[in-house]
Computed example of a mutant assay.
Amino acid sequence: MAKITGNRDIDRPLGKDASPAKARRGGVLTAERVLVALAAIAILGTSAAISLRDRGFRVPVQVAVSEPVEPAPDAIASQPAPSPDARPQGAPSASIVRVNPDEDDSGEGVIVIRDPSAIGQHPRLAHLPDRALIEESESGPLPVREPGGRRPFDAYARAWSGTRGARIAIIIGGLGLSQTATQRAIDALRPEITLAFAPGGNSLSRWMQTARRAGHEVILQVPMEPFGYPNENPGRNTLTVGTSEDENLHRLRWALARITNYTGVMNYMGARFTADAGHMTPVMSEIGARGLMYVDDGTSARSVAEAMALQKGVPFAAADALIDPTGDRRTPVPAEILKRLDELERIARARGYALGTGSAFDETIDTVAGWAREVTARGIELVPVSAVAVDPEAR
């Protein structure tokens, strides 16, 4: 017969503990202790599940360090791109960059190790230019394709759901010209709305970084000759039909070098220039060679931009409506803006997508901001302009 060990609780008077010290040292496990242990294990398991539930794949590794802060994004943009011979053609390269170095007062920064398998930028890196997509020139840092074919259009595009439902893209342009309006647009508009910067603006690099941190996709407006030029003047370094091809390309590169981290360009004015295939061809070739998208603002029925873009393999989108026409007024009327937005909703439901453009008037920003808060409930997805572009290279 097996020997019975342990305390003989049955022989002990109620309320008396014959060996408290031994019990405290963990003699026989009681039912109460077992229940406590099981409860603790359940709590720990639940906490671990909750902490892991929202973590997606390819989460960057963040490491606190005490090394000197890296240069600001402007300094990064001015550095030359890595040599194509530094790694096999088309091979992705991991890179280590510091996030928000200018906001770190402790002397310690946060380093994010980027996953080379990701095509686009991580949201926390969206304000930092990808040096592999920059070419140094006398005009400044120009966008360029990577040797493996990756384009700025791919790298800087904002992600969207990819579903087949009705979707609308809105571009608000003229940013950088007014500091107040630019800040207002970035703060008030949903990040799905694309922001377009004028090359003649001020502090463009800083505003680009602010917009990208806020989640916006960015494009660049290029001044092109309208009918009635020079009385109607888009501004400095306008591309014109009376200028040589070399000079127009020089002016285009000046504009392209004003900011980084943008997916494409959009004409500013340009009804006369965009109607001239002879002058549009070299411009579209340059845009395509640099891996950028072209957006036609839709204000000219004579534009040959679509045919030129598809011929040159350039991602292309054309606006369906100018949402804030001013006519003879100095500013648009909110009621008219809402009518144009309603029209975009009808187009999106019928065709699957629609694109509208507007300017950074206070009335436009406020009206679009209010509309954007409600449109999702009506079954419309707001998307960046890259989500409605036709990409010949994706076919």
Rank of each mutant, 00 (worst) to 15 (best):
T364P: 08
G109H: 10
L382N: 08
A335S: 15
G352E: 00
R124S: 11
S205F: 05
D297T: 14
A188T: 15
D17K: 15
V69I: 09
N237H: 15
W371A: 03
A42T: 10
R212D: 00
P13R: 14
G120V: 02
S19R: 11
P141I: 08
P84C: 10
V241A: 11
M1E: 09
D9G: 13
V112R: 07
H122C: 00
V144I: 13
D115Y: 07
R25K: 12
V61A: 08
T238Y: 10
D276F: 06
P223R: 04
E108H: 12
R340P: 03
N231I: 15
R53C: 01
A350F: 06
P282N: 11
P332L: 03
R272A: 15
V333E: 05
Q62N: 07
A37I: 10
L252G: 12
V375T: 10
I111P: 08
P82W: 02
V333I: 14
A321H: 10
V34D: 05
D328G: 13
E70I: 13
R8I: 07
E70S: 14
P88N: 11
W371E: 00
D105A: 15
S78E: 04
A188C: 12
Y156E: 00
P143N: 02
E136W: 15
V69Y: 06
R58F: 06
Y353K: 13
P226K: 03
I113H: 07
P80H: 02
L341E: 06
Q221R: 12
E135V: 06
P123Y: 01
E32D: 05
I219L: 03
L52R: 08
T299C: 08
G327L: 08
M269Q: 14
K339E: 01
G200V: 09
A255V: 12
T240N: 02
Q89T: 03
A181Q: 08
T274A: 10
F153A: 09
A307T: 01
T299Y: 12
I134L: 11
R55I: 11
T194M: 06
T326Y: 07
R145W: 06
G26Y: 02
P143C: 05
V385I: 13
A48K: 15
I323Q: 00
G149N: 01
R395N: 09
A126W: 04
A360W: 03
L142Y: 03
R87F: 01
R124N: 03
G264A: 02
S139R: 14
M293C: 09
S285T: 09
A23Y: 11
G215E: 05
I193E: 00
L29C: 09
Y156M: 00
I172M: 13
A118Q: 07
A307H: 00
A301L: 07
E135F: 07
S137W: 07
P88T: 08
K339Y: 00
R164N: 01
S51Y: 09
D54Y: 15
G270Y: 12
G356C: 12
Q179G: 12
G120N: 05
S95V: 05
V99T: 05
G291C: 11
G298A: 13
